[in-house]
């Protein structure tokens, strides 16, 4: 039986296995609070979808191709970070862990680069937040997700450095368990973004 959201360790990982019950649950509660933030930004976005104020609209600004690539990158990175946490649970081999973490970081970086490219091309076409209510809603929601991804990548680096210094000790394990939960959570938010923000407007 699983005791908390995300991957559960097993008894061979005591004491991290027991500490995770409270710590990962607490982090999950924080995610649930965060999901309200995103939910309200989604609602605001939907409510403002007509507020173009004569400015450029979704068909002028969005590129389906890059959004598709971003979606794939994030989905694959969800798999690789899952593999990283499985490697931590079962293999306990730093080198293998680094490979998975490195892959995840690279995919995250690629995702962010594509997003930055999207943002830049929007600005180029006059899609800046000061142009309309709809653009304001876009620029509050999607970059907030990008900010979350950046924070998660910074966390990933911090955890990698800690593995170098401390090895895979309890704190590292607890950190990686929570980072994995955050990463999957961000992918779920992204499902909302590509469905509502991009495809909902283009479809």
């Amino acid at each position: 039986m699983s005791r908390h959201p995300g991957l559960n360790l097993d008894a061979s990982h005591a004491p991290a296995h027991d500490q995770a019950v409270t710590l990962v649950f607490g982090f999950w509660v924080f995610m649930m609070s965060d999901v309200i933030v995103f939910g309200l930004l989604f609602a605001t976005y939907v409510a403002m979808s007509d507020a173009l104020a004569g400015g450029p609209g979704p068909h002028d600004l969005f590129e389906l191709r890059t959004v598709f690539i971003e979606t794939l990158l994030l989905l694959i990175s969800s798999l690789t970070i899952g593999m990283a946490s499985l490697s931590m649970k079962h293999e306990r081999d730093d080198a293998r862990l680094f490979i998975w973490l490195g892959l995840t970081f690279g995919l995250g970086l690629a995702f962010l680069s594509y997003e930055l490219h999207d943002f830049a091309s929007m600005v180029e076409k006059g899609g800046v937040p000061s142009r309309s209510g709809w653009l304001s809603a876009f620029w509050a929601l999607v970059p907030l997700h990008a900010l979350h991804v950046s924070a998660a990548m910074l966390w990933l680096v911090v955890i990698a450095v800690q593995v170098l210094i401390f090895g895979q000790d309890s704190e590292v394990k607890l950190g990686l368990l929570r980072l994995t939960v955050l990463w999957h959570f961000l992918d779920i938010v992204w499902i909302g973004i590509f469905t509502i923000v991009y495809l909902g407007e283009l479809g």
Binding site: M1, S2, H4, P5, G6, V21, F25, G82
Partner: peptide, 13 residues
């Protein structure tokens, strides 16, 4: 991914 299912789950979650 998050291993959340309707049964066999800590009820709090």
């Amino acid at each position: 991914f998050l291993h959340i299912r309707l049964r066999g789950q800590a009820r709090d979650d």
